[in-house]
């Protein structure tokens, strides 16, 4: 009898353990799992090794860095999912606040000037998209050309020197200057874009376009429109991020943005589980990816590791997370099949 009970109890424990294990596996099978674990581990590590990490001042700085990458990553995620990429978005980031500045300078009210800058950013996206889908030029090439073109344009109209960002302190505060304003914008955009990707026809058709281009168009989806729309979206988000940063810093710098911020946004998206080949990805993953990159950079800066070493470690970090992502992706597939 006694032996039986012991056996029963052992069975209970093992079935419970099994349930927990199953849950853990279910979590691992979600696209964001690996990267969430990495983020948590990193935060714990830096908190333990550095007392300045979880302070208000540092969190504020950290949130601002993450915010900018996150917003751009939202656009790049949509583009990557439908099988394209935008290399020029970091230059739109630099150009947009100048358009706002000059429009305001010409007597247009600031809010309108801001909207005008966003519209101009959208037009750049429209050009990127139109060249890519109508002329069949790979977006890598289209947007590489656009990268230099816009950079030249920004440097020309700004004469290469920074200007003071216009506007009242209150307006600037809302638009990013206040400590957590920028991350608040970023989170709002993440929520909206998550809903767009997961709960609208636009999002579904974006996945379908990247997953099976010919099939999607045979099903009647206007894949050119989907792609072009996502180019416009990415450009507008890039321009908006540039404007937020201009308000936060108080000056508008023609050398801001560029390739660095674009690559970090793409890295955030890819680390977050978005497939470079298209057809799969999540907005939340890109957000967590940006958090990981931000925490890494901020943590290393606090530890006094210099910029060269930082790039080395970030590079290795990106490779490792991407590899683990691919590995976990395989695990997901195996898990789903059995």
């Amino acid at each position: 009898m006694r032996g039986d009970q012991g056996l029963l109890r052992a069975r209970d424990v093992s079935s419970m353990r099994r349930a927990v294990w199953d849950q853990f596996h279910a979590f691992l099978r979600t696209r964001e799992a690996s990267i969430v674990i990495v983020a948590v581990v990193l935060v714990i590590y830096f908190e333990v090794t550095n007392s300045n990490f979880l302070t208000n001042a540092n969190l504020q700085t950290l949130s601002q860095t993450i915010a900018a990458w996150t917003i751009i990553a939202c656009g790049e995620t949509m583009l990557l999912i439908c099988g394209e990429i935008d290399l020029s978005v970091g230059q739109v980031f630099a150009l947009a606040p100048f358009i706002m500045y000059f429009a305001h300078d010409a007597g247009i009210p600031l809010v309108l000037a801001l909207l005008l800058a966003l519209a101009a950013s959208g037009v750049i996206g429209l050009i990127n998209g139109t060249i890519t889908v109508r002329l069949g030029v790979p977006s890598f090439v289209t947007t590489l050309g656009m990268f230099y073109l816009i950079n030249g344009l920004t440097l020309t109209i700004s004469h290469g020197s920074p200007v003071e960002t216009p506007g009242s302190p209150e307006f600037a505060a809302v638009m990013g200057a206040e400590g957590y304003a920028e991350i608040a914008w970023a989170i709002a955009i993440v929520i909206v874009m998550h809903i767009v990707l997961r709960h609208t026809r636009w999002g579904l058709h974006t996945v379908a376009t990247g997953g099976n281009l010919l099939g999607a168009s045979e099903a009647g989806i206007n894949t050119n429109r989907i792609k072009t729309g996502n180019f416009v979206l990415t450009s507008v988000l890039g321009g908006f991020t540039g404007i937020l940063e201009a308000f936060r810093i108080g000056s508008t710098d023609p050398l801001a943005g560029g390739s660095n911020i674009m690559f970090l946004a793409v890295a955030a998206a890819v680390i977050g589980g978005t497939a470079l080949a298209g057809g799969a990805g999540t907005i939340v993953g890109g957000f967590v990816g940006a958090i990981v990159l931000g925490v890494l950079r901020d943590g290393f800066t606090l530890e006094g590791i210099n910029a060269f070493t930082f790039d080395l470690i970030i590079g290795a970090g990106i490779l490792v997370t991407m590899l683990s992502n691919i590995h976990l992706g395989r695990l997901r597939q195996l898990g789903g099949r059995s």
Partner: peptide, 24 residues
């Protein structure tokens, strides 16, 4: 029904069944 089926591998069966005429 197209010869290549025009299905999207990464989407669920029900999303494929309603591709481009989704219920909203």
């Amino acid at each position: 029904v197209y010869q290549d089926l025009a299905l999207v591998g990464g989407l669920s069966i029900y999303h494929n069944l309603f591709l481009n005429r989704e219920i909203t």
